[in-house]
């Protein structure tokens, strides 16, 4: 055993236990750690935003280099403050409109390219998959699965006999997919817990390397 000597490691361990104490029930220790975390994260976000964005991207170019075009994003950005001034609070919609329009416009071609064209290319049967029997079967199952899953999500018309069978098959694929995701989710949550125990046993208590 090689107990930590640093104050900060002890404080980290204390906060870890404060949060874990919620497993028993909500209590002041948990609340303290939670509120401290919120405060620190706000301060951290403001600091990084200032050092990584505001200072190098706005203050230096505008006030030191005199690049006046930067006044435009500054004015739009300042409109966010009007959110807290009831008389002119509508001005907050200006930067929101600009950013939303930009995001939506950028998303359309990107999504068509990455999630539709490429995925259709991946789903269709190319000569390569016919080179080996097992690959052919798996590719066929995948293709059927994709079509049936999409059919399941098609709610615009009442299902006929064929589309009902396809949608039912789609559910089977979806359930296997969700099962796979659940299996992986278990893995994720356990990993996070192991990580905390590694901190307590290694950094704080020093019983493992």
């Amino acid at each position: 055993m090689n107990l930590a000597t640093s104050f900060w490691t002890w404080f980290g361990a204390f906060l870890t236990f404060c949060i874990f104490s919620f497993l028993y029930k909500d209590n002041p220790f948990y609340k303290f750690a939670e509120h401290l975390f919120v405060g620190v994260s706000v301060g951290y976000s403001i600091s990084i935003s200032y050092h990584n964005v505001l200072y190098p991207d706005l203050i230096v170019p505008l006030f030191r280099n005199g690049e006046l075009l930067n006044l435009v994003p500054l004015i739009f950005g300042l409109c966010y403050f009007t959110r807290f001034l009831p008389k002119v609070s509508w001005l907050v919609r200006l930067p929101m409109g600009l950013v939303l329009g930009f995001g939506a416009g950028a998303a359309i071609p990107a999504v068509i390219q990455a999630s539709i064209i490429k995925q259709v290319q991946g789903a269709i049967l190319t000569p390569d998959v016919f080179k080996r029997f097992d690959l052919t079967v798996w590719a066929l199952i995948s293709l059927i699965g994709v079509i049936c899953t999409v059919t399941y999500f098609f709610f615009s018309r009442e299902r006929g006999k064929v589309t009902k069978v396809m949608a039912d098959l789609g559910i089977i694929f979806l359930m296997v997919g969700f099962g796979a995701s659940f299996g992986y989710t278990v893995m994720a949550r356990i990993s996070l817990l192991i990580g905390r125990f590694q901190f307590l046993l290694r950094d704080w208590l020093g019983v493992i390397k």
Partner: peptide
């Protein structure tokens, strides 16, 4: 295989919805 098929189907749905 089956997971890929399901996730691709969902991806199509999300993509079309997003557009």
């Amino acid at each position: 295989v089956p997971n890929l098929a399901a996730k691709r189907g969902i991806l199509f749905g999300i993509a079309l919805g997003g557009i």
